[in-house]
Simulated scan of single mutants.
Amino acid sequence: MNFIDRSANSLAKVIYSHYPEGASETVLRYSLTLLINTVTSVSFVIIFSFFTNHLLEAICVIAFYTILRFFSGGMHMPTSLACSIASILTFIIVTHIDYNFQPFGLLLTIVSALILLKTAPNNMENSSSVNPKYYPHLKVISVLIVLSNLYFHSSFLASAALAQALLTTKIAYKFSDYIEGRTNA
């Protein structure tokens, strides 16, 4: 059990012992795992980016990516620690890669929009309470969020959009299976 899960487990037990009428210990543990994972990842990225003079970029990337992920869904890592590490690495890499928006960022923005047009929303059944009848709306919103970068012309947002769009593809799931050793070989 990693530090995120241990912390969430300990806090859930304490909260439940003081307020058993509230949520179950399992629900508390799950919610606290998400909260601790998010706070850990965002804090690490913000602190790192502050010291590398990329704080504004980091804040924009985290906000853009999080909003896009909410509407487009995507692959989930098998553990909270893996999720935290993957999020930290993704945000730091995306925040620190700078290039001219024209033509490369434009291309990434269009490719990301096309990927999401085909794949979004993805893997929302077990992680969202959104009614499936609204999935076509989520697809449109996801694509519009990505296409908003045609206004901003941000290489950081183009990279963040591509990173998130790729997490909605079969390639991401195959990579995850490979990492976890679940190959069919």
Rank of each mutant, 00 (worst) to 15 (best):
L116C: 04
G105H: 13
I115W: 09
I97M: 14
A120C: 03
S127A: 05
N126L: 01
L107Y: 14
L108D: 11
P103R: 07
A120L: 08
I110L: 14
N126S: 03
F104G: 05
L117S: 09
N100E: 12
P103Q: 07
N100C: 08
M124R: 00
H96N: 15
N100S: 11
V111T: 15
N123P: 04
E125H: 01
N126T: 00
K118M: 07
N122C: 06
I115H: 06
I115Y: 10
T119D: 06
N126R: 02
A113G: 09
L114N: 01
S129E: 10
P121C: 05
H96F: 12
I97E: 13
L107W: 15
L108Y: 14
N123K: 06
S127I: 00
T119Q: 05
L114E: 07
L117W: 12
E125G: 01
L106N: 14
Q102C: 08
Q102G: 06
L114P: 03
L117I: 07
S129K: 07
I110N: 08
S128F: 00
G105R: 11
H96A: 11
Q102I: 15
A113F: 14
S112M: 12
Q102S: 12
N123G: 01
S112Y: 14
N122S: 14
N123M: 08
H96V: 12
L106V: 15
L117N: 09
I115K: 03
Y99T: 14
V130G: 01
I110P: 01
V111D: 13
P103D: 11
M124W: 00
N122V: 04
H96E: 13
N126C: 01
T95I: 06
S129T: 07
